[in-house]
Design a protein around this nucleic acid. Structure first.
Length: 261
DNA sequence: ATGGTTGGTAGCCAA
């Protein structure tokens, strides 16, 4: 089964692109971030017409995540990252989807950007990553296929940026950020795109500004992490780079994995 | 070092 993630940067602005991509890529499960829509205002109808079931955790104006699944969504297990009742940001939704002889758990996340460094935004990012680690630690005890994917807003290694020096002062590339990501992976998760494409030069984001796309000044910040039971089923992973050249593109492109049943 | 662009919203904020 094919499971994908895409930060679409506004569902209203990207509805046509999202529908076009769903038709050509045909993922079984598609996870969107930055829908920038309330749950009520999310345009589920056009996606349902393509055969998708829809689960949304939205918010007015910013953030917001949604899961689309061709298979029935057995359960929406979590809306909002656990660990801080005072955090109202809509950045996490977790669902259970059926597969042969069991389920796959899909955690769709939009990790805080954290810029600028040295502010409460950066502290929020690091605290959010700690909460994520705690939550995932619990999920791994289920010993089931878990796909934890989305916009991590983390550049894991220098090879994940065309020009690493340009990100030196950026929250996405701070030692603390990279360390928190490593701690998460070191719980026993597999970075699917890294596993399938070990070389440099694979990017998932190109800024709208300063001709980043034209110069291929990209970074790899959207990731698909797999539990051991999911990694055992990993067949392939990839990035739909061509969507960045579309008219009115998102600044991110879709990332996907193919898992055997 | 700086400035550059987009989306959502309604005056700038977030990215």
């Amino acid at each position: 089964m094919k499971i994908a993630t895409w930060n679409i940067n506004g569902v209203k602005a990207r509805i046509d692109s999202a529908l076009t991509w769903l038709q050509e890529a045909s993922p079984d499960v598609a996870c969107f971030q930055e829908i920038k829509s309330t749950t009520e205002a999310f345009p589920a109808g056009p996606f349902e017409e393509l055969g998708y079931n829809v689960a949304v955790h939205g918010q007015k104006g910013f953030n917001g995540v949604a899961v689309l699944s061709k298979r029935p969504i057995d359960e929406v297990a979590v809306k909002g990252l656990p660990g801080d009742d005072g955090d109202a940001h809509a950045r996490y939704i977790e669902v259970l989807v059926p597969r042969k002889d069991g389920v796959v758990r899909v955690g769709n996340l939009y990790l805080p950007n954290g810029n600028p460094i040295g502010t409460d935004k950066f502290a929020y990012k690091l605290a959010w990553m700690k909460r994520l680690e705690t939550h995932v630690r619990g999920l791994l005890e289920f010993e089931e296929p878990l796909v934890l994917l989305g916009d991590y807003n983390v550049i894991p290694e220098p090879a994940d940026a065309k020009n690493p020096a340009a990100w030196r002062e950026d929250a996405l590339f701070q030692p603390e950020t990279r360390g928190a990501f490593r701690a998460l992976v070191n719980l026993g998760l597999t970075d699917a795109v890294r596993a399938c494409h070990p070389g440099p030069g694979i990017y998932t984001f190109w800024d709208y500004q300063a001709g980043a796309w034209q110069k291929d000044h990209g970074i790899r910040i959207d990731h698909v992490l797999l539990s051991p039971q999911a990694a055992d089923r990993l067949q392939s992973a990839g990035i739909d780079k061509h969507t960045r050249a579309w008219e009115k593109p998102s600044d991110h492109v879709p990332v996907w994995v193919e898992l055997s049943e």
